[in-house]
């Protein structure tokens, strides 16, 4: 699965110190629910991203437990406070053990 998974994030380039900013994330993933059957009638085993986290300079913004009801290509939108210049780190955890990360710097200005 680790092949075709591509995370995307949208983070503003700059913010005022202490400002609330909106973050958007999208990752390509089939989120196979474990409920579907293939053409031969066999259950397709569950294979999803089960956790997503966003941290800024090591401090948590959000930590999401994800279940099979999350749609294909999981999308999240949420707000973060930016106390200083630094780096957002986004991490997705796959059922198969793969971990996908994406980082984005933000400046104060």
């Amino acid at each position: 699965m680790a092949d075709n998974v591509k995370p995307k994030v949208r983070v503003p380039k700059t913010a005022a110190a202490g400002e609330a900013i909106t973050l958007k994330t999208l990752i390509s993933h089939p989120m196979e629910s474990g409920q579907r059957k293939d053409d031969a009638g066999n259950l397709i085993p569950r294979s999803i991203i089960n956790r997503f986290t966003c941290e800024f300079n090591g401090q948590s913004v959000i930590d999401v437990t994800m279940e099979p009801a999350i749609s294909t290509n999981p999308y999240f939108e949420f707000e973060a406070t930016v106390p200083e210049a630094g780096t957002f780190t986004f991490t997705w955890y796959d059922d198969d053990g793969s971990v996908y990360t994406e980082s984005q710097d933000i400046a104060i200005g």
Partner: peptide, 19 residues
């Protein structure tokens, strides 16, 4: 899903897409 908000969450608000 369960959204756990950390100290740097500017609001306790989140959007996603579900089945």
């Amino acid at each position: 899903a369960i959204f756990n908000f950390g100290p740097l969450a500017a609001s306790q608000t989140a959007s996603t897409r579900i089945r």
